[in-house]
Structures are given as structure tokens and as C-alpha cells.
Design a protein around this nucleic acid. Sequence first.
DNA 1: TATTCGACTGGAACCGGTTCCTTTCCGGAC
DNA 2: GTCCGGAAAGGAACCGGTTCCAGTCGAATA
Lengths: 334, 334
Amino acid sequence: MSTIADVAARAGVSKATASRALSGRGYVSEGTRARVTDAAAELSYVAHSSATSLATGRTQTVGVIMPPVDRWFFSELLAGIQESLFALDYELALYGIREGTETRERLFDTVLPRRRFDGIIAVGIQPSAQELQWLRRSERPLVSVGPYSEGSSAVSIDDVAAARIATEHLIDLGHTDIAFIGGPGGEGDLSFGDARRVEGYRGALEAAGLEKHARLAEAAPTMPGGYAAAVELLGDRRGRPTAIVGVCDEAAIGATIAARRLGIAVPTELSIVGIDDHQHAEMFSLTTIRQSPREQGCEAVRLLQQRIDDPDSPVEHAATASVLVVRSSTAAPR
Amino acid sequence: MSTIADVAARAGVSKATASRALSGRGYVSEGTRARVTDAAAELSYVAHSSATSLATGRTQTVGVIMPPVDRWFFSELLAGIQESLFALDYELALYGIREGTETRERLFDTVLPRRRFDGIIAVGIQPSAQELQWLRRSERPLVSVGPYSEGSSAVSIDDVAAARIATEHLIDLGHTDIAFIGGPGGEGDLSFGDARRVEGYRGALEAAGLEKHARLAEAAPTMPGGYAAAVELLGDRRGRPTAIVGVCDEAAIGATIAARRLGIAVPTELSIVGIDDHQHAEMFSLTTIRQSPREQGCEAVRLLQQRIDDPDSPVEHAATASVLVVRSSTAAPR
DNA sequence: TATTCGACTGGAACCGGTTCCTTTCCGGAC
DNA sequence: GTCCGGAAAGGAACCGGTTCCAGTCGAATA
């Protein structure tokens, strides 16, 4: 593989001039520039990234710390981040975060300080004080997706509002006995937004004077989780709610499947609302609150790039809007 | 942030000695080593990765080229790759591959030659001749997951065998009218294994003298895809098959849901087999062929590391075994 | 005509590590 | 007492870029 010295030699100029010609910075005559770019093309020269990083202090890489991508939200988010970074010609270094503090500690203690990236996007992580300090020590901007942390930009949906809108939709239809599937007890750290969704659900009930009817069925935010919780919830024929709010579409879909198995007609006997607008929501005709994790990923990249280019730019919190998408899993109670 | 020169100064030795002491290569007295490591700890020194890469020619990074992770197989595979790389202290640079040749071309032409990584794992990609040449020019070992390509290691499941075993299971139960959901027409390039699964299905039928009964319902390898194909397939009450092989569990689950909606009892009226052992398979009591993408990811990393450490080590093709997992979606026909 | 200024270019330092080569020192073999 | 060899450590080159600084040259200005 050829170096910039080879290019310079072939073009009959110095390394310095070749570098200027290729980067476009500084004075280079038109003729020289052409000779250099020609030489580079002939040698199919590509700059060595480590050398460039060492010289400039910029790596053109963004580190992304993320839970396992086996949930729709995270895989979509990653897709958005990936697309935006590729468009900006940044590389993406992916770091998994799992339970098990020793790996998490090694990540923050050893891996992240290597200055491999110009900025970090942290997804669904509430860093501890210690971890936050490590992140700061690396002196790289941080954008978090999900939980806010002071001094860094963040993007998230308004979880409270999303759950409130979902619940209000059911109240507007005339429901009074509305259960919520997927409260706490789910996944600990990762379900950062789930608690706020419960809050939104409770808020809507209170506003309608229905707070006494609040019913929480704990469940993991997954299809099997929602299924199991719904089986439990709907098993008792008499105490059955007339409507369900799922903490996310996966849980709501699980509940839909459970209802079908139990012979409960949706929406005539039971209304179900989800939150997400998952790719499978349409197949189940699920009424839901749309959020676009893909766009959130793009937004996170935008905020990060802004802070990379100008570290003094103000910290921003972008909260994306929630839209109700009505399909046919909800109706007035009988 | 401190450099190795700072560490050396604090320990009262030269840069060279400090480097040797920290890396463990070359002669360093026990006392000196201790002084250096102490100094490094006090300054919380971490080597600058670009500098190390430039000096050694190794980046401690592996590039992973992968389709969108919104399918279970890919997200599990990525998790396996991630885990293994983290354990080996390698970084993971993720590159998405999407339809649209211009991004794909930029990836192969510009991004990959920057020598950012010591090796590449390519998932579900059949590189063109041109692309293969670019990859070779980078002189980095390549391991592919899925399709084989000459001169590089590969891991995959034996797709033909998996589909054959699934089909034979149904034949053994006494089924003769067995349809296959999810043939071609799915996703083009990405469904590299799907064609071989169709092959395995046909092979099993032929071996049993049932080749005339072969029936292919084209479908995307997704839950909605399987659902739609099954609705079509099962709509005609008389011509209905007694058993279905799904190209993957997602498709099989879609078919299961379709059957339930149509009031067709599984397994008494219809048997369904999938391939994957998806995380949701248990919830649907789906009989399936287990493959572990996570393990395939680990295996890919193992093969790659071997070739990074010794470029002359032989090329290997690892095909993982397929195991039939019988749940209760299959039974003898009535 | 002397001076100034801006365009253009090259030499050399620098980024932060690793490693080759050399020197010093010391103990054991002759 | 000399020679040899291995351990220990430092100086300097090197990886492949970028950028500062100094110098040349031609045109414009005083």
C-alpha cells in the first residue's frame, strides 16, 4: 500500500504539498493539485487512518454504547445512527453493555479512555457517578439516548406523554377499567423509560378521576412477557379489564395473542393500545403511539456532531413528538 | 491525559524502558518494572490507540459488515461476535450494508481500505469479484458468515440438512402434503441460505417419493411474510396441506398465527415446523431446528483471530450442527 | 526602483507510541 | 587477568500523516 510520500514523489512535490493538495487546506496551485490527485489516483492511495488520527487528534469515529439489539427499539435506533454516521463519513465503534459489573467496569475503565473516538452515544444507560467521571476524563462529548444526564445532550421521546395519550384514547372511548402491562420488575436499568410510562398512565387516570381503577400487571417488555401477563390478567372472567395499555408494542402484541387464545375478541371485548409502532403492529392492527427510534438515532448523531465541531455549543435535549396511530385494536366498550 | 513520556519521566527511566515494562516484551528488571507500573497507575495512563496502531501496524479492531440487525438471526449473531471480541480485547467497527450500490461501493472502495482493522467478518454477503479484489488488496483476513467465498474462512449452518431434517420429521409423522413457506422472492442477496433450505426440503420429499407434492409459498422470511403466505395457502379449505415447513421461525410463527385466526387447530389439523429456535419459539410451542447464531458469531471470531495471528494458517469452513427440537406444533395427521 | 505583500512550496518538527542498535555492567569460564 | 555472554537500559529511528515556519518568486504599490 502506498503512502503520501509515494504520492508526493510521483507528483514531484514534497509531502507537505501533497498533504495540502489532498486535504484542500492551505495554498496549492491548480496545476500542482491536479498532479497530486492524479498521482494519488494512479497509486490508489488512501490515507492511513491511524497516522491521520495521531497527527490531527481526530479519529473520525463515534463510540456507541448500547444494550443488546434484540429489541426492536434498539435495532432501529442503531440503524438510524449507522446511517447518519455513514453519511458524515464517521466510523462506528460498537460497545455492548451487559449486566455483570466487571465487563461494564472494564469498558469504562480501560476501553473507553483509549481515545478511540471523537464522541460517544450512550443508549439506555444511566451512568454511575464514577462512570460519568471517566467519561468526562476522556474529554469527548457525550449524547445520551433515553435518560438525561447533566452536562450532556440527550434525545428521548416524552414517555410520560406517550402513555398519557394512549390511556386518554381509551378513556375517550368510554373505558374505565384500564390495565397497564409491563411496569417495573422488567429489566432494571434498561427499562428507564418504562417507569415514566407508568407515570403517564397513572396521570391520565387521575385526570379522569379513575385513579382507583389503576391496575399494573408486571411484565418484561417483550412479546412473551406481555403474553404471560395478559394470560394472568384475563384469566379471571369477572375481574377482567375492558382495555389494556402495553408498555411497548411487543408487550401489547403478546397480550393480543393471549386474548385470541383465550377467545376474547379484540376490540369488541377488549381494547389494546401499544407504544412504539413496531414493524409488526400493522399485522396485528394494533392502535399505538408512534415513535421513531430511527429518527432518534439520526438526531443523536446530529447533536453529537454539533458538539464535536464546537465543544462550547450549548447542550440540547431533544424530545421527539408522540403521535397516536389508530388501527382496529381499540373500540368503545360494550 | 498523560503520555508514555510522562510515565517514563515519573519513573525515572527512558521511554523505551517504560514501553518495555508495560508491554512485557524485552528485558526489564523487576524493580524498574514495578516503578513504571506504579507511575502509570498514578497518572492513570492509557496508551493512545492511534499511536500504538501506527507503530505496530495492528489496530486491535475487527470490522464487521452486516445487514440491518432487525432480524433475530443477525442480532444474535452480532451479540456473539461482540462478546467474543470484547473478551479478546478487540474493538468492533460496524459497517452496515444496504441495498443501493453507491453506499456499498463507497464502503468497499473508500472506507474499508483505510486499514482500520486487522480483519473483517462479512455476514450474509456475497461479494462481487470487484469487491473481493478490494478486500484482498487490504491484505486483511476475511471470515464470512453464510455464503462461502474462496480463499477465506467461513462459518454457516448446513442449511440443506436443517430443512431436510425438518421435512423428514413431518414425513416420519405420516404427512405427505407438506408445503414450504418462504422460498425465493424474499430478500434477494440476503436470503443466501434460503435457497439451500428449499433444496433440503425438496431433497427430503424426493427421498420419500413425494416430490410431486412439493409446494412452495413464496414469502419474506418475517412474521408478516409467513402470515400472509399462510393465509393464502390455508384459505382454500380443500387443497390445504397438512403440514408446513417455515424457512425460519419468524415465518413459521407468522403461519401459526394465521392458522389460529383461521380457526385451524395446531397440531391436530396442521403441523408446523420452523428453523432457528427463535426466542419466541417456545411461546408458540413451535417444533424447530435449532441453530445458534450466537455461537456462530463466536466461531467466526475464533477463525478470524487464528488467521490474524498466523496469516498462513489454513482456511477453515465451520458448519455447525442442526438439532431437531420437538415441541407441540407437530403431530401425526388425522 | 525599492518595498511590500500574497501565493506557493519545501524542510523539519511533531503526534505518541515501538523497536533496533548500542553501551554499560556484571558474573562465570578460560 | 582477559574474554565472553547475557541482562538492563538509553538514544534514536521509525510508523505516516499534518502543520508551523521560513524562503522564493512575481506582481502590485509607494
